[in-house]
Design a binder for these strands. Structure first.
Lengths: 219, 219
DNA sequence: TTATATTTTTAGCCTTGTCTAAAAAAATTA
DNA sequence: TAATTTTTTTAGACAAGGCTAAAAATATAA
């Protein structure tokens, strides 16, 4: 079907389109993939020929319907494998990304159908990110960034924006994971830091932490 | 560590060494990998430089200790994944080879340690082939080819030599799988065909079938 | 608007792994 | 032993995917 490199480009562009809006620049792709802009130009020209994205010189790219579908398929596989690694093989949520990065390229429709069933057709991966369905459709969740929650409000942690091992390990130390209830006890306007309560513990978190945690507010 | 192509060559050579003995010819490798002898020469020169095998021009190759270890590691991964596919995802034994062919190249020590544990540290794959241990050591089993079993003797099917879907499907139709007891009721010297009993059924099998079934005779 | 800076593309080269065609070595046959 | 066939290697080419350096287009500043 598609080469490993092609799949990785499509995935990266898909993520960029969801993060920002409109067309995506060559440089943005290069940066997100840790490669050189000239390599990106080469590849997007190939992907444009295959109608996976539209591309005009100097004007950036935009995924076509089929490009989006391929990308969502890769992301579906990535996230299902992450669920497998955490739920079945007892990996910790900060250890699974690299392995899933490889597993996402295994080619077999049937494998993913069966893996999904085996895992009970999960809707979210261990970081709280939604798993695209078999048609590539992402369930949109009403999640907010913790830093946007007001004083005296509460939310349930539903995901993380950043998923570096360092950050995930910090969250573990503070006993924060998917499903954890967080109360905002105080908020400092000057630097965006917060005092929050998790379980029976109250502690301080910086703006940097608060802006990388997704919560769902309960009505 | 090693590239996909390197791993595949090492694996193919490892299998050839176990099947025949002594040094392995360029042509034999090319045939087993469905590639051209010139490509094989290129690759074995690279592998020789990396000390994964010894090679003298026109004299064939032989895996070194480390070459064998790498190959056994790949085979271990292949067979563990096959067990996973059959036991956990309910694949049929004739459907798993191609997928395992991809999964065997996933790089993660920890993944295999945990997968092995999750599967209950199996010793054999769904075709009855032994799974090398973490040091690359293969349990040798005392298996014979069914065609070598004498009249009025019985054996338990422990594996297959050939594992094409066609052959495995034939075996299914005849209700033969790993663990099935087989009685040799008659044997024709002219063409090597046999009359066997499986469960309550008695039927004829050709020499071609009999020479591709491994059985363990019971004493 | 012109000059400067940034972004993007092009051109050319490299590596991996493959191939075909031709040359060289080894094995076989007469 | 000489001639022929088979096997193996070498030489040269190609595609994928990456890189650097330079050119071209666009954006920004004076």
């Amino acid at each position: 079907m598609f080469t490993l490199a092609e799949e990785n480009y499509l995935k990266a562009i898909f993520h960029l389109e969801n993060e920002f809006q409109g067309e995506i620049s060559t440089n943005a792709i290069a940066e997100s993939m840790e490669t050189k802009p000239s390599s990106v130009t080469d590849m997007i020209q190939k992907l444009a020929e295959k109608k996976l994205l539209t591309y005009k010189r100097y004007k950036g790219v935009q995924l076509t319907g089929s490009g989006k579908k391929v990308a969502a398929g890769v992301i579906r596989k990535h996230r299902l494998w992450e669920v497998f690694l955490v739920e079945k093989l007892s990996f910790h949520w900060d250890e699974v990304h690299e392995i899933a990065e490889q597993l996402e390229h295994i080619q077999s429709e049937e494998l993913i159908i069966r893996l999904d069933k085996f895992l009970g057709s999960p809707d979210f991966d261990p970081h709280g990110d939604p798993i695209p369905d078999k048609h590539g459709v992402l369930k949109r969740t009403e999640k907010k960034i913790l830093s946007e929650i007001d004083k005296n409000q509460k939310g349930v942690c539903v995901g993380v924006k950043e998923s570096s091992p360092e950050f995930l390990q910090y969250l573990d130390k503070k006993k924060i994971s998917i499903g954890t209830k967080i109360y905002v006890l105080g908020k400092e306007f000057f630097d965006g830091s917060m005092i929050i309560q998790v379980g029976s513990e109250q502690f301080f978190i910086s703006h940097k932490i608060a802006e990388n945690l997704y919560v769902q507010t309960q009505e």
